[in-house]
Every structure is written in structure tokens, then in C-alpha cells.
Design a protein around this nucleic acid. Structure first.
Lengths: 225, 225
DNA sequence: CCGGTTGAGTGTCAAAATTACACTTACAAA
DNA sequence: TTTGTAAGTGTAATTTTGACACTCAACCGG
């Protein structure tokens, strides 16, 4: 058997990516969802998705899909799972790999999002999604939650500089439960890679809240071996 | 644009599964690896893999690949990750999804394994593997280790009935560090889903060691909501 | 200018979980 | 009956986690 034949006796499939795009606003997690104005499943809600193209890495396809929708590159993205049931897409057989992305919700390109008929929807209010996208969301949420307990990925949902009150609200949203303020700040104080910038945010309090930033070098120094 | 055209403008790809098959013997984790007597990469070591076929779920393809090699069905298997770099398979473009499987190493079909030119290799001694299979192994190992700290998946590597000494040796192999015997037994004692069978194993000690089994009903009762 | 309001910031103690640690027992073989 | 081997057992110290309430700074309105 030639090497060519080795491959060619096997079928090929469409490969897609679907992206669970998380944002954080007003104390709640949101997802960027599309109300589809195109077939198939026109009119229904879905994740941002797209097909993998010739010569394109799987990860890159996911980055492209998110960039085309939000204008944002360089996001924190992680692969969640690949869904390969024969009948999962009623149109044709498609293997789809889900990725989650974390977005600073202040930064996305509003024009692009509008043009795609996409909307930020707060988590508790998300509608039924097409195909198996509901399952993708719950798998992504579980995985993101787990990662957030292990490393400070949540920071990617906040602006460069943030207050501890914002950070706490974020973790409360991610974990879905209230956190004691003093215990939280005690824990953060031990993380030398979350450092004061010296700046002060006065938008929320008369007193003003110290601004912090994530220091990637210190973090990598502590945990990469 | 018709629905047909929606799909057909996009390329298709080969979809493969590669399986990291773990066993446990003599206090060490092993992998079932193939020394390939077929192209491509004939003569080199690889994971057990195969292509997804028409009308076959992705998970089922992974089960089939493991079953064809070991004769074992009904194994504990979990998807690890999908590898989609353009150049990862030097032959043709293939998207490959890795799964790990946990095998009771006493039970596999020796004829089948021999026929496939496959061998159990203890973890510290595994050779260089083809393509990106090394990376698959290390990702699978990390994932399996994590899962083992969270739920008793390791039990799938032991026979139905096992002694606490075996169980401890297993966890020491999975975690890669020694465990205090009394603390370990204290922890196990709290898990009512690991129960004495009443049987006694005399193969290792004159005194005899109590045999235990995993009670799936009790476990599911405790943790499924 | 002073009292009120708002969110920021801070420390201690109790409970729970984790870790370290060494000897006795049962049995079979010599 | 002595000896060797793996099985089995409890306690105390340490660390980690969780509960809890007031003061501070600054601005606002009267």
C-alpha cells in the first residue's frame, strides 16, 4: 500500500470551531452570542463559529473566528472539547472543536459585532442555542471555572488596571458565590504578581480605590520551572 | 446560498483518534505502545491510532481503536485534546483527537496485542514517539493525574478486588510521590464507596490483606445530584 | 463648615484539614 | 519456637480556611 492510499481510503469531514466568548460587566459574566441571520438555523441563537480552512491550524481558526467578530487579537483562549457525534449538526457531518475566549468587554469592536448581529447576553439569561451549543457552553463554563481556581485567568476579563473590588466581583461571578472581602484581600496580598500600580480609581468611591495590575513576568517566574 | 453550498465551500480533513492506554503493574504506570510495522513511520513507536469512519461518532472511533488492539470494551476513556496544526502529520493533513484509556493490565487480549506488535512500556522508559504523540502523552498524563485527584478514576487500573496496599501503590505511581500509609488509609476509610469484600489476599503477605471493591452505586449516590 | 453617605481598607480567633510519625499483629516458613 | 514479611492502627502539631465588624478618606448637601 502506498502512503497516499493509506490516507485516501479514509473519509474526510468538515472541521469547525465554535467559540464561547466570555465578558464581564456589572458584576456578571456575559457571552457574546449571534442571532443568526443566515442559514442554517436562521433566526436562532448560536455561538460564534466557523470552518477550519485549508492550511490553517485549528487554534488559528478559533482565533480568526473571534477576531472576525470582535476585532480582537491576542486573547486568552483555550480549547475545551471536540464534539464528534454523527448527528450533532443536522446539515452535514461536522466535527467541531469548542474554544473559550476571555475578553475585556470594554474593548471589542462595536461595529463588527453589530454587523454580525451579535449581542452580549448575561449568563443567567442566555437563550437556547442551536445544535449542541448549550452543552459547549456548560462544558466551557465548567472548564473556565476550574482554570480560574488554579491560575489567575480571570484577569483577562478585566482592563489592564483594576481595583480589588472589581477583581473580587469578577471572582464572585466566576464562582457563582459571594466571597468574604477580608479573606479575599488576604489571599490576593500573597500573590506578588498582582501589584499596585500606584494609580487610584475614583469613579466608584469618594475615597478612591488603589489600582492593581497583573505582572506576567513575576507570575511566570513563580510557576514556570 | 443553498444549505448545501454553505458547507461545500469549506474543505474537509481526515479525522483521527490517538489513544493513550494506561496500565498499572509492579508499582508503575505503563503505556501500551505500537512499534509500527507499517507506513508511514514504519519501525518507530506510536500510540494506538486510527481514522474516524463514516457514520462513526468520534468517541466510538476511540473505543474501536482500543478494542481492536486490546479486545477490551467498556473501558474508562476520556477525551484529552484535539491537535490540529497543519504540519503535525507529515503525510497529509489530519486532525487528531487524543483519548486516554485505563486498562486492568491483567485482562487484555495478548494475541491481539502481539498481532499489532504492541508492547506495554513503563512510563519512565517510554521511547520517542512519532509526530506529536509525545505531547499527547504528556497532556494525557497531566489530565489523568488531575482527574485522579478529584475522583477515583485510578480504580479502573486495578482488578475488581484489590488491597489497600495495591491502591496506595497505584496512587503513588499516578502522583509520582510517596504517600503516608496511615494518612492514606484514613482518607480511604472515609470513602464509603470503597468497601471491604470480606475476601483476603494472601499472595503478598503471610498475614493476608483485606480485599476491597469500588461500589459504583454508592459513589454515584454521593456525587450525582 | 459640619454631619452624612459611600465604598475602601484592615486583624483576630476558631474550626477544619493536613501532615508527621512508630509500633504491633497475624501468619507461614525455616 | 523463632524469624521474617507485609498489614494494620492513633495522636499530636501545623497549616489552612472561614467567620466576623469596624474605621477611614473624601465628597456632598444643607
Amino acid at each position: 500500500m502506498t502512503q497516499q492510499a493509506f490516507y485516501s481510503v479514509h473519509p474526510k469531514f468538515h472541521a469547525a470551531v465554535d467559540c464561547i466568548i466570555f465578558g464581564f460587566e456589572e458584576g456578571e459574566l456575559s457571552l457574546l452570542l449571534l442571532q443568526r441571520n443566515f442559514e442554517p438555523a436562521k433566526g436562532r441563537w448560536s455561538l460564534a463559529g466557523g470552518f477550519v480552512e485549508e492550511g490553517e491550524d485549528l487554534d488559528d481558526a478559533a482565533r480568526r473566528v473571534v477576531a472576525e467578530l470582535t476585532g480582537l487579537d491576542d486573547l486568552y483562549m483555550r480549547q475545551v472539547h471536540t464534539y464528534g457525534e454523527v448527528e450533532r449538526d443536522p446539515g452535514e457531518r461536522v466535527l467541531s472543536t469548542a474554544y473559550y475566549a476571555l475578553v475585556d468587554i470594554k474593548k471589542y469592536d462595536r461595529e463588527l459585532v453589530r454587523a454580525h448581529n451579535a449581542f452580549w447576553v448575561k449568563l443567567p439569561a442566555i437563550p437556547r442555542l442551536i445544535f449542541d451549543h448549550d452543552r459547549m457552553v456548560s462544558d466551557a463554563l465548567r472548564f473556565m471555572r476550574y482554570q480560574a481556581t488554579v491560575k489567575p485567568v480571570g484577569i483577562n476579563l478585566l482592563p489592564e488596571e483594576f481595583t480589588l473590588t472589581q477583581l473580587q466581583a469578577l471572582y464572585e461571578a466566576i464562582l457563582g458565590e459571594p466571597i468574604d472581602k477580608r479573606n479575599f484581600r488576604k489571599r490576593i496580598a500573597q500573590m506578588d504578581y498582582i501589584e499596585k500600580t500606584g494609580g487610584i480609581d475614583k469613579t466608584l468611591s469618594r475615597k478612591g480605590a488603589a489600582l492593581y495590575r497583573f505582572n506576567r513576568e513575576k507570575y511566570d517566574g513563580n510557576f514556570k520551572i
